[in-house]
């Protein structure tokens, strides 16, 4: 069982990224649950979405000890990293999280900058992050995620979304 938490601020699209990640896992025949925090917290403040993926039935529906935490803002990083598994991975947007929490295993990627400079809009930052998560987690095949994204986004934006996914996927080794 793998537990992943995606966090950022409202409007950064972390929930959409989490849903697509879980959908991809389901397409591959895995068990998956996805949940999120709603309400005022999700509008501007720190917001989070969680995904659990397993080969067996998932009962408790929330992340208890995350294996991966993605933080797209400083506030999210501060708020959501501290229960990470000791062998877990913290992924941060290196521009938006200037004060990286003191954690042994951190991956820093300029997620939003890649979206703005190489895809054209910060709107695609969540797709860059999703590509990154697919690579780092190794839980879902990249092709399945690309298919899932293509089915979910407006047809006119498939190309840019796919581009953002690939840039994220290639941003780490």
């Amino acid at each position: 069982m793998k537990q992943i938490r995606l966090s950022g601020s409202g409007g950064q699209g972390v929930i959409t990224a989490a849903i697509i990640f879980a959908e991809g896992a389901v397409k591959e025949g895995k068990e998956a649950v996805q949940s999120q925090s709603y309400g005022p917290e999700a509008r501007g403040g720190a917001s989070k979405a969680e995904v659990i993926i397993s080969d067996q039935a998932i009962y408790h529906p929330k992340v208890t000890t995350p294996d991966i935490v993605l933080a797209m803002t400083q506030q999210a990083a501060d708020k959501y990293y501290d229960d990470l598994h000791e062998d877990g991975i913290l992924i941060v947007d290196e521009d938006l999280v200037p004060n990286v929490p003191n954690f042994p295993n951190v991956i820093k990627v300029p997620i939003t900058r890649i979206a703005v400079e190489q895809v054209g809009k910060s709107l695609f930052a969540n797709m860059v992050a999703l590509g990154l998560l697919v690579k780092v987690s190794g839980l879902v095949s990249f092709d399945v995620i690309k298919e899932t994204v293509a089915k979910r986004v407006p047809p006119a934006t498939i190309e840019k979304n796919t581009m953002a996914l690939e840039l994220g996927f290639d941003a780490v080794k």
Partner: peptide, 9 residues
């Protein structure tokens, strides 16, 4: 709310 908002296979 737990089941209502949960996405699951």
């Amino acid at each position: 709310e737990i089941v209502g908002h949960l996405r699951e296979k």
